[in-house]
Design a protein around this nucleic acid. Structure first.
Lengths: 259, 259
DNA sequence: CGTGGAATTGAGACCAATCAAAGGACGTGG
DNA sequence: CCACGTCCTTTGATTGGTCTCAATTCCACG
């Protein structure tokens, strides 16, 4: 749990693409890490990796730990827009701007690998395959965001919580952890911030799922008792609103559709 | 309004980067169009540009008209995740996959310029500046999505509608149209689908804004009477929920923050 | 002039927010 | 080792915003 290295300053050791390298989601991790010397940064729970407005140093690749990405408006509204685990990229939305657009905060002690702006740009410019893969990774991130936009707009509280649990379960499973036994790295308030729910509502939803026998909850520990039933609950017709925007302009639309 | 060209088939005329080229958001339009021969496609209101699962032919650049992008889940839930105007890219989220991930439908008669997959990839590979700019455009799209995730999660119905109106107003203004007089290309149901509201709620919100003297509504025509007041309404403390996820683990967090 | 889709408005129900209070878990300090 | 404080979690009671169902009006179009 506790490392003997208490320094928060990144060291310049080049990580080999071998054993300890995480598989980068949507990218060829080996190819990436073979060409970009990463800065390994140990971080403590609660520590901020970067803040809005800070000079953009580069993307960050999660090596261990769970991180929350938050966005804030000028008037003080704030939300968590995602949780990131090992192998996932941070700060992609800040590319092209001179400074970070969001904030990323560690939920647990962990380690991130910083990909220096210059070196990364150079690698992209010289390795077409990497550039293509990286575009794909950005597109995948867009798809993920939009999946959640769909979910948050069409699901009720219980379904949203179920979605988050299944999402975390699947992502932890890909990392080699148990699919059925997960430990939440976040508080109820943080789950709620992401799901656009109040913390009490999150608690109630989890209690309800527990009572229905779909999960077993004990504070941060969650056991997925019946995954398929959870999925069915989400897909079920208990939807809050269908929001079906039907075809437009009847006649003209039908003609156009045929084309 | 009506073009004399009724064919829906794209022709292969290469568009020069000159007069008729829209400024591409986040990209150097001239540079792009000088190196990628676009397929000009006229589309009718209601026509689908691409559907989920269709083979990915390439990105599309809006030349005229307003388009809605919808995402659907396997169980039939569906939502509009964005509206696109002249100069904006479509299908970016489909990059890297072999097929389109969403659906784009024209809300009015218009024209889109298709950027053939191969030619576009080649241009990116040979023009580093373009590749960098394109990454920036993708990042900008991520930021836009997340701004809306924030808004939809923290604003009430009236504020959401106000946000959409201001957003459209600003985007139309950049295209040279009036900032205060806008014509909605979409139905109330489509606005609601995007804003995660029912169409009746959208109507009521607009009526309320009208009654407050902030806008003047007559079906699809909206006059922004008091833009600053609209912005203040959004920023105002009438927020639905603050969702402030405070610092974690008190002591340790504070220590970490100091670093 | 008749028709159908879109927009508007009303009344009631319901889900989640809000306010309130109590019960743990954990680290700290006596 | 235990008492204490703090934060997190849970549960209850109530309010309120939005959904739902329903009816009417408006407008574009044939």
């Amino acid at each position: 749990m506790f490392s003997s290295d208490f320094s928060n300053a990144p060291d310049h050791s080049q990580a080999s693409a071998a054993i300890s390298a995480p598989a980068v989601s949507g990218l060829d991790g080996a190819l990436l890490l073979a060409h970009v010397p990463v800065l390994r940064r140990r971080v403590r729970a609660g520590q901020s990796l970067y803040r809005p407005g800070q000079a953009f140093r580069g993307l960050m690749l999660v090596h261990s730990g769970c991180y929350k990405c938050t966005i804030a408006s000028a008037d003080g509204r704030e939300r968590i827009i995602g949780f990131r685990l090992r192998g996932e990229l941070l700060a992609t939305e800040s590319l092209g701007t001179g400074s970070y657009a969001c904030e990323a905060i560690a939920l647990e002690d962990g380690e991130v690998w910083e990909l220096p702006r210059q070196a990364f740009a150079h690698a992209l410019a010289t390795l077409p395959e990497l550039a293509t893969a990286f575009q794909g990774a950005l597109a995948e991130e867009l798809r993920r965001d939009r999946e959640w936009m769909l979910s948050l707009g069409t699901l009720n509280a219980e379904q949203r919580v179920a979605s988050l649990l299944l999402d975390l379960s699947a992502r932890y499973a890909r990392l080699g952890f148990s699919r059925s036994q997960i430990v939440l790295g976040m508080t109820r308030a943080e789950m709620g911030s992401f799901l656009a729910l109040q913390l009490e509502t999150v608690t109630r939803a989890m209690s309800a799922l527990d009572a229905e026998g779909l999960i077993e909850v004990s504070r941060r520990e969650v056991r997925i008792v019946d995954g398929p039933a959870l999925a069915a609950l989400i897909a079920g017709r208990r939807t809050l609103a269908s929001h079906k925007a039907g075809p437009r302009n009847s006649r003209r639309a039908l003609a156009a559709m045929a084309a």
